[in-house]
Amino acid sequence: MKTNIVIALLDIAQKPDASMSTSLITTRRICRIFGQRADAIRSERRAIRREAGKLRAFLPFTTSRIDELQQQATEHRRAERDDLRKVLGAFGRSLMLDTEGLMDGLGFDRVCDLLGVNTVEREAARKDGVNGLAELVFAHSLEDSAARRGQEWNDAPLFNACQVAFNNFIRECPEHLLPDPFAPGAPFGPKLPPTLSIVGK
């Protein structure tokens, strides 16, 4: 049934007279459906691994069965999961780069309305100079903030799509182009010495 919904949403988004608002709404809905499918696969895999975990109490007699279950969990709906991650990654990349020009076309307030951004956080983001879709959705993770009400955990559909795209980028980017996280001044590196300056007299 959800496949029919996705097809209907794609048909709506691809209409020649579809607005940018419609595009963003349908993208969110499709990402939400695909995210739910990916979560379902993850839950099913976890259930298989839990079953294998229960058999550990009877080692070494259950070694082969545990191995079978671990392999089964790894292979469970693998092709579907990979396809979902590809599609979510493509949506996420498009959002991170704002290939459709949604932020410019719709404006900050309209995008915030469509993403369900909390009014207080919207104003804070405006003061911080947030003006890109990637900043709003991924860096500041403000999507659905009106519903989350300050919860740190973010499971918003566009955020998840951007996260998949970001993970793909890190995995696929040539190593020499990635910054070193352990370099001096980097998040995991040694702190740089403070910059000293002379204060005016």
Rank of each mutant, 00 (worst) to 15 (best):
G101N: 03
P181E: 12
Q163F: 04
S145F: 09
G101R: 10
A165I: 05
A161G: 01
L133C: 03
A165T: 02
E143Y: 02
F159W: 13
L133R: 04
A161C: 07
E100D: 13
P157G: 07
R126F: 10
H176Y: 11
D155I: 06
H140S: 04
G89F: 03
F159R: 08
V130T: 09
A134K: 13
A146W: 05
L136V: 03
P179L: 14
H140T: 07
A183C: 05
N167L: 15
G150M: 11
L114W: 03
D155G: 12
E175Q: 13
F166H: 10
A125M: 04
G189R: 10
N118P: 00
A139K: 11
E175R: 14
F166G: 01
G132T: 15
P157L: 10
L97P: 00
N160A: 12
A124W: 04
P184E: 12
A147I: 03
G101I: 12
S94C: 07
L95N: 05
G116L: 11
S94Y: 02
Q163D: 12
H176E: 14
S94K: 08
R93K: 15
D180P: 02
P190R: 14
A90T: 13
M96T: 07
R171Y: 14
T99D: 10
M103S: 05
I170P: 00
